[in-house]
Design a protein around this nucleic acid. Structure first.
Length: 797
DNA sequence: GACCTGCTGCGGGATG
């Protein structure tokens, strides 16, 4: 039945989460199609007279190689006159040179490398015989700028090869219809083919034996280490997912300390390890040589290893889809459900797990919203197309508007982008490097070879903070750590990386030189990475679980386990219903605390914190310290405040929300930081040169400088506007904040004066201390808090 | 009694 899909239609195939599905779903039909559609064969040259017929786009280089191998085998078997090649960053120069004049019958590539192909002056010719495009892991690409890059590329290919069929493959997401629509482009039609095999997934939890002794706060989760070790003892292959790189290092070390005999059969995997180290782990995992691997999301996708026996998730699952994806790494045997066991790092995560399981059982799964009009990506694309044969404005405008991302692109915006690549805009017109495109005989083209090279170097939409390579004095590279972390190291300091204790020797040539530490423990590096937000569906589900607990419904082992703590919360304060907002007021020697628990995720709470501080201080001059976590926020003031009056005056009103948020935060500074990505993507600055790297500071300075120049001399620059939009959407999740405030109607507010911190509030107090003091003093402070709590308990029996 | 955080992904090509 699958082969029918390639004959005439386009569409999206939903393949439920789990590795291997991609090839199962596609190889068969693709092979049939390949067999039934032999390319015209040139017997003299012994080659296809029509080159490229199938283009396969994948988000990962590793998948490109695997796919090529999987395609090649049956083609050799059938002895078909087809060639299969990859074109990614690591494709050899020999192959790449061959591909300059002639593409293979099937090409497997990444979005970035597709764009690079589109910069070739003869690309119209290269792609004119293309019959089908397959976009693998479309759900991964869609909601990002990489997805928009694919959309623009597909629009190009549809023009070069009219009648082109486009098929996507997507795991389960909440908006498959949208995913289809975005892939097909505006006006395009396609079929959505949903898999009908319901996947059985079991989610359970390691329940702490004594909830009274279980932490209320913290994220590392080592409290349950013995229970995890017991599981490793009983199984042949175990995968342990964590939420951060540091957590991976910590857990690896802790397991090895407890079971030294595991040395050699336990490994770790995260993005800051040297690729060679990662490949070693991946291959050993494939070969079944490892008993246990501790990893981050770096093993979520990509590596096609055999399913493991047991999968664990340490700490918050953060999202429903994410946990299901990870569960899918286990138990693929027929009739056996995939299973994941959550290991809570603190008590409240028990509620999270119960919430995820309920949401998953109701078929709820996060949607991935596509982006709207990222002009930086369009600017990059314009230069790409100018290099790739040039364009005529009206024609390309129509083509670009066939993409979902730019379907509503106004002529005014189009003209601005065009003008921007031609002149550099109002402020930058004196700099020749920003005059990238010229007009010749009514067409827009790019000819300068230096600018062409510059552009090819800056293709892509992924930006990352630069890190420093860590290498043995006499030996191999190990991995990467943050500049900020290195700055704190003195010669002789020990730290861990890739599970090894290393001794810092010196920093030279932008490399961190180390030797193996003879003994002792090293500090675990802190990487400043992305802030992984808890999903909106999950926070919704958490509020439902609390609501149930309030009415006495404890329907799972997790909820039963956490009951004593929820009871304590209720006794000391209140357990809010799903539609209620609990606000606690507490006075201590520190000052006047205000705790709010919207359960909307950290980002929203941070925004809400500054919004409320801003609005409160407008009533009367007062300063606050703000702390937030995924469940709530704390405002600490030195002076008392009249909360009732403030609420009556619209403290939580949605009126002037955007204005108030922007003026409550250092919005300019945030936009400036966000602009860094836009400057990179739109080609205003370049962050890497082959051979020598430009340091982060220079990069930072130049994008910051450009921001200032634009803000002063070209304030209408649309990229500035976009930077502000991206800050609101990504760094503040403003739509979620808006929705939250809509829910937090004054009528639903429950105000409680409390005498001591509650289970909800205590973690926020710790969080605030963490922000303001060093780690040593933090320990002291927490001890003091403890003592005062004990004293309070003594005094009050 | 409660403790320190922060994911993933890509990418150049002349000449001999």
């Amino acid at each position: 039945m699958w082969s029918a899909y390639l004959n005439g239609d386009s569409g999206l195939i939903h393949a439920p989460t789990g590795t291997g599905k991609t090839y199962a779903a596609w190889l068969g039909p693709l092979m049939e199609w390949v067999r039934d559609n032999p390319p015209p064969y040139d017997s003299v040259k012994r080659k296809n007279s029509e080159p490229l017929r199938v283009l396969w786009i994948t988000p990962l280089r590793a998948l490109a190689a695997d796919t090529a191998a999987a395609l090649t085998a049956p083609i050799l078997d059938l002895n078909l006159p087809w060639s299969v090649e990859t074109r990614t960053g690591d494709t050899s120069m020999t192959v790449r040179n061959r591909q300059r004049s002639r593409l293979p019958s099937a090409l497997i590539t990444t979005p970035e490398s597709l764009s690079l192909l589109l910069t070739r002056p003869d690309c119209a010719d290269l792609f004119k015989s293309l019959r089908a495009v397959i976009v693998d892991e479309w759900h991964e690409l869609m909601a990002s700028k990489r997805g928009v890059q694919v959309e623009l590329g597909l629009a190009r290919l549809r023009r070069f090869a009219p009648g082109l069929r486009v098929w996507g493959l997507s795991a389960t997401i909440g908006n498959l219809d949208t995913a289809l629509h975005v892939l097909m482009g505006e006006g395009g039609q396609g079929k959505l083919i949903r898999a009908h095999v319901p996947k059985q997934i079991q989610i359970d939890t390691l329940i702490p034996a004594q909830i009274e002794r279980f932490p209320w706060v913290g994220h590392i989760g080592l409290k349950l280490l013995p229970d995890v070790i017991r599981e490793i003892d009983q199984h042949q292959s175990v995968l342990i997912f964590t939420n951060t790189r540091a957590q991976t290092e910590t857990w690896y070390q802790a397991i090895l300390d407890a079971r030294p005999e595991f040395a050699g059969v336990i490994a770790l995997h995260h993005s800051s390890l040297e690729p060679e180290v990662r490949h070693w782990v991946e291959n050993a995992l494939k070969a079944g040589q490892l008993r246990c691997v501790v990893c981050t999301a770096s093993l979520d996708l990509g590596v096609d290893f055999a399913p493991v026996e047991r999968v664990f998730q340490i700490g918050s699952p953060k999202g429903i889809a994410r946990l299901l994806q990870r569960a899918g790494r286990s138990g693929h045997r027929p009739g056996v459900a995939s299973r994941i066991t959550c290991v809570p790092a603190h008590a409240f995560e028990l509620v999270e797990v119960a919430a995820v399981r309920d949401a998953a059982a109701h078929g709820e799964i996060e949607a991935r919203p596509p982006l709207d009009r990222p002009l930086d990506v369009l600017v990059q694309h314009l230069v790409t197309v100018a290099l790739g044969g040039g364009f005529e404005s009206a024609e390309l405008y129509v083509e670009v508007r066939t993409t979902h991302a730019f379907r509503d692109l106004m002529p005014r915006e189009w003209d601005w982008c065009l003008q921007f690549v031609v002149s550099g805009g109002e402020a930058l017109s004196n700099y020749p490097q920003y005059q990238r495109v010229i007009q010749r005989d009514g067409r827009y083209v790019a000819e300068d070879t230096f600018l062409a090279r510059w552009h090819r170097l800056s293709i892509g939409t992924i930006t990352s903070d630069p890190m420093l390579l860590v290498q043995y004095l006499r030996g191999p590279k190990i991995g990467y750590i943050d500049e900020a972390f290195v700055a704190r190291l003195k010669s002789g300091d020990k730290f861990t990386l890739a599970g090894k204790v290393l001794q810092f020797v010196r920093l030279r040539e932008m490399k961190v030189w180390v030797r193996r530490a003879k003994n002792g423990k090293g500090i675990v590096p802190r990487w400043t990475g992305g802030l992984l937000p808890i999903s909106e569906l999950l926070t919704d589900a958490i509020r439902v679980k609390l609501d149930e607990a309030r009415t006495g419904k404890f329907d799972s082992p997790e909820m039963l386990a956490v009951k004593p703590i929820l009871d304590l919360q209720d006794r000391l304060s209140y357990l809010p219903a799903a539609h209620e907002l609990l606000i606690e007021q507490l006075t201590t020697r520190e000052g006047h605390h205000l705790f709010l628990y919207p359960f909307e995720g950290r980002i929203v709470h941070e925004g809400l914190g500054s919004l409320l501080a801003h609005r409160l201080s407008r009533r009367a001059p007062i300063t606050f310290t703000i702390a937030a976590n995924d469940y709530g926020l704390e405002l600490l003031a030195t002076d008392p405040l009249d909360l009732q009056a403030a609420l009556a005056e619209g403290l939580l009103s949605t009126e002037h929300l955007q204005q108030d948020i922007l003026s409550s935060l250092n919005a300019t500074e945030m936009a400036k930081r966000q602009f860094r990505e836009l400057a990179r993507v739109s080609g205003l600055v370049i962050e890497r040169f082959p051979g020598g790297q430009k340091s982060s500071k220079q990069m930072q300075a130049s994008s910051g400088l450009i921001y200032d120049v634009l803000a002063k001399y070209d304030p209408d620059n649309l990229l500035l506007e976009q930077a502000q939009r991206e800050v609101l959407q990504r760094q503040l999740e403003s739509s979620r904040l808006f929705r939250a405030l809509g829910r937090l109607h004054p009528a639903n507010i429950v105000l409680r004066q409390i005498a001591r911190p509650t289970p909800f509030g205590f973690p926020l107090m710790v969080e605030r201390l963490r922000q303001t003091v060093s780690s040593e003093t933090l320990e002291d402070r927490i001890r003091k808090m403890q003592l005062s709590l004990e004293k309070w308990a003594d005094e009050h029996g």
